[in-house]
């Protein structure tokens, strides 16, 4: 356990919250790029504002700084997930949309709730904190995937942690669509011994 520092000891009775141990801030470049994607570049005239973005998946370009996302409609008062209708590629260098397209697919409702059951009890801020971790882990694993090199044990653990967190957070009914974004990435993740999205039967 980390002991409080001297100034904290002095101030602990006045401002107890100020001495709590803080986690290192996570990079939010990817989070910001994903959140602003539908307002940016060609997406601004193609993607409906009402369609939320998916979690990002590393792209196959080999840079480790490009990620693919899709957009899907949520319809109804108890929002029902529908198959994706748009797709984009975002970069973390400048947070810009690098490509965007509308998918030519009929509106198709998918079964099940939006989020996995395990997330049911979370508040929005708890959910947000996990989302921040997932964005940071995605950026990290994107770099590992791009390096195309053998993983150290620590990197293998990181890839495993990413896979678990992703499956914990991803919309269950959209998993096949996540796989379609970059099948090579999911195969690579599985080969690294991490939880991944299996190939469709």
């Amino acid at each position: 356990m980390k002991l409080p520092t001297a100034p904290c000891l002095a101030l602990i009775f006045l401002f107890p919250a100020g001495c709590a141990r803080r986690e290192a801030p996570l990079s939010d470049a990817l989070k910001r790029a994903v959140a602003s994607a539908k307002f940016d570049g060609p997406c601004s005239s193609l993607i409906s504002m009402e369609w939320p973005p998916s979690w990002p998946v590393p792209a196959a370009d080999g840079s480790g700084r490009r990620f693919k996302i899709f957009f899907y409609p949520l319809l109804g008062t108890q929002p029902k997930v529908h198959a994706p209708l748009g797709e984009a590629e975002v970069g973390t260098d400048d947070g810009k949309v690098l490509g965007c397209r509308k998918l030519q697919a009929p509106l198709q409702e998918l079964p099940g709730a939006r989020w996995p059951d395990a997330l049911r009890g979370l508040t929005v801020s708890e959910f947000d904190r996990r989302a921040d971790r997932l964005f940071a882990a995605t950026e990290a694993v994107g770099a590992l995937y791009a390096a195309k090199a053998g993983l150290t044990p620590e990197q293998t653990r990181a890839a495993g942690a990413y896979g678990r967190l992703f499956l914990e957070m991803a919309e269950p009914s959209l998993l096949p669509h996540y796989r379609r974004l970059n099948p090579d990435f999911w195969r690579w993740l599985a080969a690294a011994g991490a939880p991944s999205i299996p190939d469709a039967p």
Partner: peptide
């Protein structure tokens, strides 16, 4: 607007892109 026109007899509204707001 974005519209699902797969069935022309029953168009479904799919929202507004940002630029047209």
């Amino acid at each position: 607007l974005n519209v699902d026109d797969s069935d022309p007899a029953s168009l479904k509204l799919l929202g507004t892109p940002f630029l047209f707001t």
